[in-house]
Simulated assay, not measured.
Amino acid sequence: MILLDVIFYSFVVVVSIQVVYYGVLFGSFSFKEEKTSKQKSSPISVLVCAKNEAKNLKQFLPSIINQSYKDFEIVLINDASIDDTLEVMEGFAKKHNNIKIVNVKNIEAFWANKKYALTLGIKAAKHDHLLFTDADCKPVSNHWISEMASHFTNENTIVLGYGAYNKIKNSFLNKLIRYETLLTAIQYFSFAKLGTPFMGVGRNLAYNRDEFFKTNGFIKHIDIRSGDDDLFINEAANSKNTSICCTRDSFTTSNPKTTFNQWFRQKRRHISTADNYKFKHKALLALFYISQVLFWTLLTILLINQSYWQFALSLLAFRLIIQYLSIGFSAKKLNEIDVLYLLPLLELFLIGFQLTIFITNLISKPKYWK
């Protein structure tokens, strides 16, 4: 009986932690209206790093070329592709004089390293404002550059955007991928709002070239295959230089993985970088994940033993209400409202999925970005 008492009071503590995360920390983004920034026309360089992306460039590059922005160039970085990527780039460059090509060849010291290719692209860019996306991404509107660029000021030199995934009807995997993407975005937007930004996504990210050179680029984590976006932001971003952009016209979209195996491999690369975050960020993210695991574990024990079950169910309902409100408001902002219908189920699957990746990455590290 004493053990069950300890479990119940532990459950109360865990619920309190979860409520603080969803209601307070994530609420800093979820429950606050974003201010509209004034449109600017500062020249900007859009960088697209591509490795064996000939097909995607043909499909998605026109949506960048056709942006309604006064002064921008497109820097296409061919990262030692073995398909027709370079030829496709050259074809677009012949038709559009604002396209610059950086053709990167593998060298032994930086073999298959995206950060090396991006560094060459950044150095080749003509403008100081840099906007990044991937070859398989498509801006949702022709105002994408305008929206992201509008957040640059003398103080704000880093802009975090949202990179969404396209919706696939009647696909549980698709909802799971988009829920994970939504939850990640809520986390990095919320942390940024609270003055402790910790990551961004390369599908939609902007920063000044000075910030890149101020932190010596990717040199501190050049040996880590992933992290050109989140590890750089974790090092360079702070409460004074970072802004978020989450207007609908600022989103990019890309096609999600269609099998669990493909997504598993992708997330292994993404999650492998988290161990290199600043301690405070690792601690906050770890506490949130551990509290999720403990919430469902302790709840199950209490319900199975029928001990304090009325209080346990009441706390479950309270926590779910706070969670639905927090994620619901964010989902509305980021146009992911349909994931709410399966929220508890998606949460449980994601907890198990992330645990599997964590264990797998302890055994072996992912090596390549493509």
Rank of each mutant, 00 (worst) to 15 (best):
F8W: 04
I17T: 03
F31P: 06
K35S: 15
K38A: 08
K38I: 01
K40G: 14
S41W: 01
P43G: 04
I44N: 04
A50D: 03
L61K: 01
I82E: 15
V88K: 11
I101H: 08
K105R: 12
W111N: 15
W111P: 12
Y116N: 14
L118K: 08
K123M: 10
F132Q: 04
S150R: 08
T153I: 09
E155L: 04
T157E: 13
V159Y: 13
G161C: 14
N174P: 04
L183M: 10
T184W: 15
Y188I: 09
N208Y: 11
R209Y: 15
N216T: 00
K220W: 04
T247E: 02
S250H: 00
T252F: 10
T252C: 12
Q262M: 08
K267W: 08
H270I: 10
A274T: 03
F279G: 02
K280Y: 14
A283N: 07
L285I: 03
S291Q: 01
T300F: 13
R319L: 07
S330N: 05
S330P: 10
L334N: 02
I337M: 11
P344C: 08
L346E: 05
L346S: 04
L348W: 10
F353H: 05
L355K: 03
F358N: 05
F358E: 00
P366I: 08
Y368V: 15
